[in-house]
Design a protein around this nucleic acid. Structure first.
Length: 803
RNA sequence: GCCCGCGUGGCGGAACUGGCAGACGCGCAGGACUUAAAAUCCUGUGGUGGCGACAUCGUACCGGUUCGAUUCCGGUCGCGGGCACCA
């Protein structure tokens, strides 16, 4: 009797061997392949089976590349600054530095259970001063280039987290982190000018091998639109109000104008009669939170008492104020064409303003308009010299016409806003700026970096808009690096995204204390070839990283401007009924027990078997039995045949080549769940062959090689059992022969009027007439009436149409 | 409201460029082994009708294109995601 499968003994044995003799080494001759996981933040809850899945996917891919002879860069690190870590520490009543270190230790142990080929020499930790020195250094470089600037403005404020937030962190008016309603707060903030890169961030999406969904989300987030700015003179004054419109073709239909209440000219437009009402409206609008403004869809507004002149036809149009116009988009003022814009239509109806149609629908004006006609499809009417033109054509030509006439210009706009970069929290990188009364904002010189985060007892957020660091007077009070006079440090910290925006560059040179990364290593090992992680970072981390990479490319630190060549988003693993795994729901499945009971190899394969890797899956423990059975049956099958010296047969050779073909093509297309089912299918076939006479050694070896990236321990063990001294990971990836997988005979279906009624086995290159004849023969009595059509698609189908 | 994606047995899912729908696995039922249980092995498993080979319906729903549609097109319903007064 052969040795029974014992996962514990085998996995322990190979873990030790790999530690002594690493299988993924850089000998300087191999081509690199950089396969990266989105690094985790060290949460106190540890890993659940959902985290595991992403790491298994990346490890399978890494080992697959390793077997193709690459030197695989597959590192892991810790995104340890930021709110989750700090909130956890506050809850536990412990210093975040301490809880973070403990959590890392636990999660690292759990990650090591996966048996990924992580190179722990490359490990990075964003809270390590040797790391955040460079996070601060990048900020200083951005400051020097004018891309980091300070500005006082109303920003998104989370009253629960007690900090400002970036636009990207506000989801449906709520805090991305804690779900509390976000309000507005006027704060002096550090901003990063990501908008300077808007065009490149948009255009370069084309060169990325990313899921279309993510590209689209970024495209929409950047939100580029094309249109024109048009100057309207204020009637009776010298003032000019510029509006932005994407529909300059409808200029003749502009019957009023609306300014955001925050518009610089809003107050000046009031007349003696309207002043009180205007000032009241402006005041009330300033009190509205972003949530109110988002939810109050009912239009409000006030007439200023002033009029503007439509530059095209000289028409006098009333100027209103309304908070449906955003102050920080376009020019903060719009021309209103109620006939062809939903919002303007609603406003015009409410305040009884005139509506002029300038685009005909189906050749005529709409009678008794009940909603705006917003399509740019129709012929221009009521539009002077533009009458008769197609609106779709005019829409494109109008900006140039306006520019030529001298009352406006062609322009573009973006929804993307600059990045609010200050956080009023303790657990983050201090912003390396000194406020000097004489010199203004002065960045710390490089030799003073890192600016260490001071160790304090009280790190609770204050809620006042000031960072807890502001209380540490002997840290705050410093001298100006330029003039040496007393000055104060900036007390805000950076957001969690600061470290994660560039960490992938650091892995390959993580001990360098002279540079962020040496140019030599960057050129050799970067960028990332394959990036694997959840889709939740589509417009956060993934957008910020692209921005940072472009900036670092511009200042010559690196020579590429896109960080992640290929991106794969794995689906989320949820509990029953698609409920997200969380401690509060009590539905968290820990991998620890499963590894103990079934082994790492089984859990790895089951993580993949639950469903397509890109889709969400509901976790069900019971299914792992099926994978465990497969592994045991495979083990027994190989053991039964190892010493039999079975001669290879034509049938076995064909199975072998088909196996290689099926597994490789499924793996290449990332259909990892069907790779696992493929293994099961072929294993069943080989068990069958085993009963009939046995399985040859070459087939066993091939199977073991293919299985290795998925179940590395058992594969190494069986590879050794089959007589090999070298690791299976150094023995290449099996190839298949096209000719060997071709069938001489094929079984195809015979249809009668499109419904399958029989099957026939035909020679591969059978002539059409013969195939049809065989098909008719197989149908026999069922074939009745006149045959009106005969279809034969080689290798696919025979269909006889009879009446 | 606008823009994407999805809808297949009791369950997870498979079906490459239109070609035998339900691979593989879970669960369930029956059987073998066992004093018994577990483990293992074998058989069956979309619905309806029939002892049966077979017939018939069936990929959310309605319609279309086609010799042939889970796959392509139009519409309806349901679910999930993104954006949310961006002019």
């Amino acid at each position: 009797m052969a040795t029974p499968y014992n996962h514990r003994a085998i996995e322990q044995k190979w873990r030790k061997k790999w530690e002594e003799n690493p299988i993924n080494v850089n000998d300087g001759t191999k081509e690199k392949y950089y396969c990266l996981d989105m690094f985790p933040y060290p949460s106190g809850n540890g890993l659940h089976v959902g985290h595991w899945r992403g790491y298994v996917i990346s490890d399978v891919w890494s080992r697959y590349k390793l077997m193709h002879g690459y030197y695989v860069i597959h590192p892991m690190g810790w995104d340890a600054f930021g709110l989750p870590a700090e909130n956890y520490a506050i809850k536990m009543g412990t210093h975040p530095a301490k809880t973070t270190a403990e959590n890392i230790k636990n999660i690292k142990r759990q990650i090591q259970e996966i048996a990924s080929i992580y190179d722990w020499d490359m490990e990075v930790n964003t809270t390590d001063p040797g790391f955040y020195k460079w996070t601060q250094w990048i900020f200083v470089q951005m400051f020097k280039k004018g891309l980091a600037y300070e500005k006082e403005m109303p920003i998104n404020w989370c009253p629960s987290c007690k900090t400002g937030l970036a636009n990207e962190e506000v989801v449906n008016g709520k805090c991305e982190r804690c779900g509390a309603d976000v309000t507005k707060k006027n704060l002096k903030q550090w901003m990063l000018k990501i908008t300077a890169y808007a065009d490149r961030l948009l255009a370069d999406l084309d060169k990325l091998d990313w899921p279309e969904k993510v590209k689209k989300m970024q495209t929409d987030w950047i939100g580029k639109s094309y249109g024109a700015e048009v100057d309207f003179k204020v009637d009776g004054k010298e003032d000019v109000i510029t509006v932005y419109t994407t529909r300059p073709d409808t200029l003749y239909g502009a019957t009023f104008m609306v300014l955001a209440p925050e518009h610089a000219m809003a107050k000046d437009l009031a007349t003696d009669d309207t002043r009180a009402a205007v000032e009241d409206y402006i005041y009330k609008a300033s009190l509205k939170s972003s949530v109110d403004r988002l939810q109050d869809k009912e239009k409000t507004g006030v007439f200023t008492g002033s009029y503007a002149i439509n530059p095209l036809n000289g028409a006098k149009v009333p100027i209103w104020l309304s908070d449906y116009v955003l102050a920080d988009y376009g020019t903060g003022a719009i021309m209103c064409v109620p006939a062809h814009d939903d919002r303007d239509f609603e406003f015009a109806k409410k305040f009884d303003l005139p509506i002029i149609q300038v685009i005909s629908k189906d050749g005529k004006e709409i009678e008794n308009m009940t909603e705006a006609y917003t399509d740019a499809a129709g012929t221009m009417i009521n539009s002077g010299e533009w009458n008769g033109m197609e609106s779709a054509v005019l829409k494109l030509e109008a900006p140039a016409i306006i520019e030529k006439k001298g009352f406006g210009k062609k322009t573009t706009n973006y929804k993307l806003r600059d990045w609010v970069f200050s956080r009023q929290r303790y657990w983050g990188e201090p912003i390396p700026i000194v406020h000097c009364p004489d010199c203004g904002n002065v960045p710390l010189p490089e030799e003073q970096l890192p600016l260490l985060l001071p160790d304090v007892d009280s790190y609770q957020p204050t809620g006042t808009g000031e960072s807890p660091l502001a209380d540490i007077t002997d840290w705050v009070n410093t001298t100006c690096p330029v003039c040496g006079k007393p000055a104060k440090r900036e007390t805000n910290t950076m957001p969690q995204w600061a470290g994660s925006s560039w960490y992938f560059l650091r892995y390959v040179d993580n001990k360098n204390d002279k540079e962020l990364v040496s140019r030599e290593k960057a050129d050799k090992y970067l960028p990332v070839d394959m990036y694997i992680g959840g889709v939740e970072h589509a417009v956060l981390h993934l957008l910020y990283s692209r921005f940072y990479t472009k900036f670092l490319c511009d200042i010559g630190v690196i020579d590429f401007d896109e960080p992640f060549t290929k991106l794969f988003n794995q689906g989320m693993v949820t509990g029953k009924n698609g409920i997200k795994m969380s401690k509060s729901m009590g539905n968290v499945v820990s991998p620890d027990d499963l590894v103990r009971d079934y082994g790492c190899d089984s859990l790895r394969m089951y993580e993949l078997f639950v469903g397509p890797p890109e889709l969400d899956s509901e976790w069900d423990d019971r299914g792992i039995d099926g994978v465990y059975r497969f592994i045991t049956r495979f083990w027994n099958m190989v053991m039964d045949n190892t010493d039999k010296n079975v001669e290879e047969t034509k049938e076995l050779v064909k199975i072998r080549h088909k196996l290689v073909y099926d597994i490789t093509s499924r793996l290449e297309s990332f259909s990892l769940n069907t790779v696992v089912s493929g293994f099961m299918e072929y294993n069943n076939k080989l068990i069958d062959m085993s009963k009939k006479g046995g399985v040859d050694k070459a087939t066993l070896e091939t199977f073991v090689q293919l299985l290795a990236p998925f179940a590395p321990h058992i594969s190494e063990e069986l590879w050794e059992e089959l007589g090999h001294k070298e690791s299976v990971f150094h023995c290449g990836w099996p190839a298949y022969d096209e000719k060997a997988i071709e069938d001489d005979e094929i079984e195809i279906a015979v249809q009668l009027n499109g419904k399958t009624r029989a099957t026939v086995t035909l020679a591969k290159d059978v002539a059409k007439e013969d195939a049809i004849a065989r098909g008719k023969e197989a149908l026999g009595d069922k074939l009745q009436g006149n045959v009106i059509r005969e279809i034969y698609v080689p290798g696919k189908i025979i269909n006889i149409v009879a009446k």
